[in-house]
Each structure stands twice: as C-alpha cells, then as structure tokens.
Design a protein around this nucleic acid. Structure first.
Length: 133
DNA sequence: CGTATGACCATGC
DNA sequence: GGCATGGCCATAC
C-alpha cells in the first residue's frame, strides 16, 4: 500500500492544482494545506516536478508559486504562461498574491473530494481593498 | 538502507 | 526586506 498511497497523494495534488482557475495563483503551502495529511509544501513541489512524467491530463503547474510571490522555476516559461493568463508581475518579478491569490476550492467540492478548505488569512488591510482594479 | 538533492517554508539576525 | 539555518517529505543513486 505504499506505491498506491504515494500515487494517490500526487493525484490529489494534481487534482487541487487543476481546480485553480486561470488568472490566479496559489502557493505551495496553500496546496499542501488543502490536501492536508502527509503533504508539505515541498511535496507539492516534487509532485509538480513529476508532472511531465505523469504524462496525463494537463496540470496548470504554472499557477503554483512560492509564498513570497516569486517564481521558483528557472526560465521565463512559468512567468510567460501566467502573463498569458492575465497575471501581472511586479518589476521585481513578483505577483501581487493579495490580489490574484486563489481563495481555495469550494467547501462543497472540498468536502465531496475529502479535501480541506483553506484557512482564512489575516488581512490586516481588508479596508484597503481598492475596487479600482 | 543511508546519503544527497530538490519547482519549499518558518524562523532568526 | 535580504541572508543564513533547520526541518519537513519524497525521489534517485
């Protein structure tokens, strides 16, 4: 029950990533938190790294970035893909996670698939949300 | 089976 | 905010 379990873990990660809509991004920690169990930010990175090997359904791995809002992968590939989806990058190569961060899967969807909902963040600047784009 | 590496994160300075 | 250290889990050799 090891191979199957490990396989399922990756499949779960892929499934979560697939739920991320275009135009938004999610952090490794968030994905790990949603999957829960024996899943860490690193594990998510490893799972994503094996996507090309997975050779199956398309997984928007490009929408997964580090908690700092920066891209870890080398090459402008990820950035280019995200920009193509409408994600705007900062001058330093970072994205405004506070704006394009994925809030997480729907509670019913998460419950239906046995996932965990993303914990609410402490937005100290909630009153600073400018509707002006 | 132990070591080394990795698309990471949290903490401390 | 940037840099250095420890820890986490999984894969490859």
């Amino acid at each position: 029950m090891s191979t199957e379990t490990e396989r399922a873990l990756y499949e779960r990660i892929y499934q979560i990533v697939r739920q991320v809509p275009p135009g938004v991004i999610a952090t490794y920690g968030d994905i790990a938190a949603i999957v829960g169990g024996e899943c860490d930010a690193r594990t998510v990175g490893y799972a994503l790294n094996e996507i090309p090997k997975h050779g199956g359904e398309p997984v928007p791995w490009q929408r997964i970035i580090s908690s700092t809002g920066g891209i870890s992968t080398r090459g402008p590939l990820q950035r280019q893909l995200l920009e193509a989806e409408g994600v705007v990058f900062d001058a330093r190569g970072r994205v405004d996670m506070a704006r394009v961060r994925w809030p997480g899967p729907s509670p019913d969807w998460a419950a239906a698939h046995g996932f965990t909902t993303l914990a609410p963040h402490d937005d100290t600047e909630q009153g600073e949300q400018l509707p002006l784009f």
